[in-house]
Amino acid sequence: MRALFPGSFDPVTQGHQDVLRRAALLFDEVVVCVMVNANKTGRFPIDERMGRLRAAATGFGNVTVDSHTGGLLVDYCRRGGIDVVVRGVRGVSDLDYEMPMARMNRELAGVETFFIAADPALAHISSSLVTEMSRAGRGPA
């Protein structure tokens, strides 16, 4: 089964890497995709994010990295023959955000969502937090 792990990955975090590693062990193929929102300015260029994701996927022959600009996630899934979307969740607030999208993806295209609970040691990490700490000179981005 092919799975899609979408996100902005701006920047790629240890939490993203953990979800990717675990998804790669569960699915036949995982496409990790940088989803580009034309209305947002990312901190890192798309090519750099994709490079960091490729580095995170080293050793997993079943992981590919791609990007997608515009259009719905389910359209990308249809074109790629992808049946399931993988989402990492850190807590209830993430589930509250993700559930309506999961329902819509299923209704629009029959695409299921597979939630991977964050490793408790990494659950506090977010791209926003990593960015803030980096700007303050307190950690790598």
Rank of each mutant, 00 (worst) to 15 (best):
L108W: 00
N62L: 08
M1S: 13
N37T: 04
L73Q: 09
P100T: 04
A23I: 03
T58W: 11
A109E: 08
V74N: 10
P120E: 05
R87N: 08
A102D: 03
M50H: 12
A123E: 02
R22L: 03
E98T: 08
A57T: 08
G91M: 08
A121P: 04
V86D: 00
V63F: 08
A141Q: 13
A56D: 10
Y76S: 14
E98I: 06
V86Y: 04
A118D: 07
M99Q: 10
P100G: 09
F60Y: 13
L72R: 12
G51P: 06
I46L: 01
G81C: 14
V30C: 01
G51Y: 02
T131Y: 06
V36R: 01
H68Q: 15
N39I: 03
L129S: 00
A118N: 05
F27G: 02
I46D: 01
R90I: 14
A109G: 13
R135Q: 10
G110H: 08
L122G: 03
E29H: 14
F60Q: 13
T41M: 00
V36K: 02
A55Q: 14
P11A: 10
R106M: 11
V63C: 11
A121T: 03
N39V: 02
R49L: 07
N105G: 05
A136I: 04
R79Q: 15
A118M: 05
A57W: 12
M35Y: 09
D47P: 11
F27C: 01
D75V: 14
E48N: 09
A118I: 03
G81F: 15
R106F: 11
E48M: 09
Q17E: 07
Q14F: 10
M99T: 13
V92M: 12
E48K: 12
L108E: 04
N39K: 11
G80H: 15
G110N: 00
M101L: 08
P100C: 04
I125C: 00
S67F: 15
F27T: 02
G42H: 02
R79F: 11
V65N: 05
E132N: 13
L122H: 03
G137R: 05
M104E: 09
I46W: 09
V65G: 02
V63R: 06
P120N: 10
R54K: 14
V74M: 12
T13N: 03
A102W: 04
R106V: 06
A123Q: 04
T58M: 13
R103Q: 10
D75A: 15
D94Y: 02
A117M: 15
V32M: 00
A141M: 15
D94S: 11
D18E: 09
L53T: 10
R78I: 14
M1T: 12
S134N: 14
H16P: 00
G80L: 12
L95C: 08
D75T: 13
M133Y: 06
G80Y: 10
E112T: 00
A56K: 06
T131H: 03
V63M: 11
F5A: 05
R2M: 07
L26C: 08
R135F: 09
A102Q: 05
D83R: 15
G71W: 15
V32A: 10
R43V: 09
P140I: 11
A117S: 14
S128I: 01
G81T: 14
I46S: 07
